[in-house]
């Protein structure tokens, strides 16, 4: 708990950037590019904080990870989020089995977000894999990357490819499906990650929540517009924090827009650990965040209240995932 506020980290990854992920017959260029991109990103955005620990963000030691989340930080719950990028990665960039292994380290605190791809693997196998990840691994959500490689992409509003996924998710008791939007990884085209395809899906599946990661950067305006109109769309903030240290005013403007048009009850904290493992930095930042008077005056953004911080730090994501936070607090001995 941070000052009495429940902290639920919506985005923790166990990723594997090692050469062991390079597929047979591949020159490994894509794997190396992403590794270099992320290392560069960490070096750039983390320069105001403690020195980065690049050896820890790939295939992390799980006990160390649990300690970084719960021992060295005020995190109460976390979501181990798979990264189902398969084209250039032997086991997927964030293998579901590795995320599952992290969740098993502290099952009361860590929930699993699985991942499948209906185009790369085919719809039938993807649906079967969803069942397996729920029944065998205990997945409570799914994360989707809708572009694998040239010609291998899909839209969330595709009735043939995507809607069976949403129907299956609901049948499996899933409350929220999540999407990597914007911020293309390695050489993928940015437009493949526009959030616009979520509109019909959100309208046609009002009982299912749709989580958008990264504010859809660079499609931030579209993302906020969509979330403002569809009450089952949630904004999940990983990378916002990472970028905040580099560009605080720009990030405050983005958060201000989201608070103004969407509201804190659908904005969710996510650390993107273990890219930057010192997650307490993020928690402290959010807990102490102030909307500058100038931004309130010039852009109409609200003051950031304790109620908003409580929502963002944990309540919003718990609600979107269908997790009873009060029951969880009792289970964890926090009340």
């Amino acid at each position: 708990m941070k000052d009495g506020m429940f902290v639920f980290d919506a985005a923790v990854h166990c990723q594997d950037f090692s050469d062991g992920q390079i597929k047979d017959g591949s020159d490994g260029r894509r794997v190396r590019i992403l590794r270099e991109q992320l290392t560069g990103f960490i070096n750039l955005t983390g320069r105001r904080g403690p020195p980065p620990e690049p050896e820890t963000f790939s295939d992390p030691d799980l006990d160390w990870g649990v300690d970084m989340l719960f021992g060295k930080a005020d995190t109460d719950m976390a979501c181990a989020c798979s990264v189902p990028l398969f084209s250039h990665w032997r086991a997927g960039l964030g293998p579901v089995e590795l995320s599952h292994a992290l969740a098993q380290k502290d099952p009361a605190r860590i929930v699993l977000t699985g991942g499948v791809d209906p185009v790369y693997h085919g719809l039938g196998p993807a649906l079967k894999e969803m069942e397996r990840q729920v029944h065998e691994l205990g997945a409570v959500s799914f994360k989707f990357y809708q572009y694998q490689s040239r010609g291998c992409a899909w839209r969330a509003d595709d009735r043939d490819i995507a809607y069976p996924l949403w129907e299956k998710a609901m049948k499996l008791g899933i409350k929220m499906v999540q999407f990597h939007k914007g911020f293309p990884l390695e050489l993928g085209p940015v437009e493949a990650f526009k959030p616009n395809d979520l509109q019909y899906a959100a309208a046609d599946f009002p009982e299912l929540n749709f989580g958008i990661h990264h504010l859809g950067d660079p499609y931030v305006d579209e993302t906020i517009s969509i979330a403002s109109r569809f009450e089952n769309v949630y904004l999940i903030l990983p990378l916002w924090f990472n970028q905040y240290y580099l560009q605080p005013y720009k990030m405050l403007q983005r958060l201000g827009e989201a608070l103004l048009y969407v509201g804190s009850d659908r904005i969710c904290y996510g650390s993107e650990a273990f890219i930057w493992p010192h997650v307490q930095t993020y928690i402290d930042t959010l807990a102490n965040l102030v909307m500058p008077d100038e931004l309130q005056d010039k852009y109409g953004y609200p003051e950031i209240t304790r109620e908003m911080k409580e929502n963002i730090l944990g309540k919003a994501f718990a609600r979107g995932m269908g997790i009873d936070l009060e029951a969880k607090k009792r289970e964890l001995g926090l009340v």
Binding site: L260, V262, Q296, Y301, P302, E303
Partner: peptide, 11 residues
């Protein structure tokens, strides 16, 4: 209405 009181007052 999510705008803060400063903005609403100005409006």
């Amino acid at each position: 209405v999510k705008a803060g009181p400063r903005a609403l007052s100005r409006l």
